[in-house]
Simulated assay, not measured.
Amino acid sequence: MVELCGHATLAAAHTLFSRGLVNSNIIEFVTLSRILIAKKVPDVKAKLQNGETKDCYFIELDFHTVPTADFNAAEVSLICKALNFSSIVDMKITTTSKDIFVIPPNPKLFDLNAMCFILSLKSVTEVQPQIDEILKCPGRGIIVSGLAPLESRFDLYSRFFCPKFGINKDPICGSAHCAFAFYWSQKLG
């Protein structure tokens, strides 16, 4: 059972807003994790080809943060094998869905446990997971995350692997964001 699914919540909100099925700019969804609010946020009016204007909007979801806890260091070799890593900088477990949260190595700028690292797009996007090995790992799935390069317009990168739920590779996951927002906000202030 999934406590929170950002994709499904966003799709449901879009359907309700776009079809005029709600008379409000706010929808409250009851999820297994808590009430999740979807807010219709106006965007600039877009002009159609015939010169008419159309209201455009974004949908903002108010995800909560999910704390992470220390993870059993004895499992590092199993996780490294599943992700084809030679080592891991940090590893935590989410306190709700029991996802394993992994920070891959890539030396340079980030001070974590007296070691300097910059965790780049390359270290996250080039993960070659072994799906059969992930199935043997504890927890629901594995989140891999790293800081974005300073020159990018992003804060961090992530990928989520959850073959136990039929999702081998998910480039973005709402419930994973709840965990790594908590983790990275503590590291980055």
Rank of each mutant, 00 (worst) to 15 (best):
17 F>S: 03
90 D>I: 12
156 L>V: 06
19 R>I: 00
165 F>G: 12
164 K>V: 04
78 L>M: 12
96 T>Y: 14
182 F>K: 15
14 H>I: 13
26 I>S: 06
188 L>M: 15
183 Y>M: 08
87 S>W: 09
122 K>N: 07
164 K>A: 08
88 I>R: 12
122 K>P: 05
62 D>P: 14
37 I>Q: 14
95 T>F: 11
165 F>L: 15
173 C>Y: 06
160 F>Q: 05
63 F>P: 04
152 S>N: 09
169 K>I: 09
50 N>M: 00
93 I>P: 14
161 F>A: 09
32 L>S: 07
145 S>V: 09
120 S>H: 06
48 L>I: 00
140 R>T: 04
9 T>C: 07
13 A>C: 05
51 G>C: 00
163 P>K: 09
32 L>Y: 05
78 L>A: 03
185 S>D: 12
55 D>M: 05
40 K>V: 01
91 M>S: 11
34 R>M: 02
52 E>K: 15
147 L>W: 00
36 L>I: 13
155 D>P: 11
154 F>T: 11
123 S>I: 12
95 T>M: 14
186 Q>M: 12
13 A>V: 06
1 M>R: 13
41 V>C: 03
85 F>H: 05
169 K>C: 13
186 Q>R: 08
123 S>H: 06
117 F>R: 03
110 F>G: 11
17 F>G: 10
115 M>C: 14
104 P>S: 12
65 T>K: 14
81 K>L: 05
23 N>R: 07
18 S>G: 05
6 G>Q: 00
154 F>N: 08
12 A>N: 05
38 A>Y: 06
100 I>P: 11
127 V>P: 07
20 G>F: 00
151 E>L: 01
103 I>P: 03
67 P>F: 06
63 F>A: 05
177 H>F: 15
124 V>F: 03
114 A>N: 15
12 A>F: 05
34 R>I: 01
114 A>K: 15
174 G>S: 02
97 S>I: 06
18 S>I: 07
36 L>M: 10
83 L>Y: 03
166 G>F: 09
89 V>D: 07
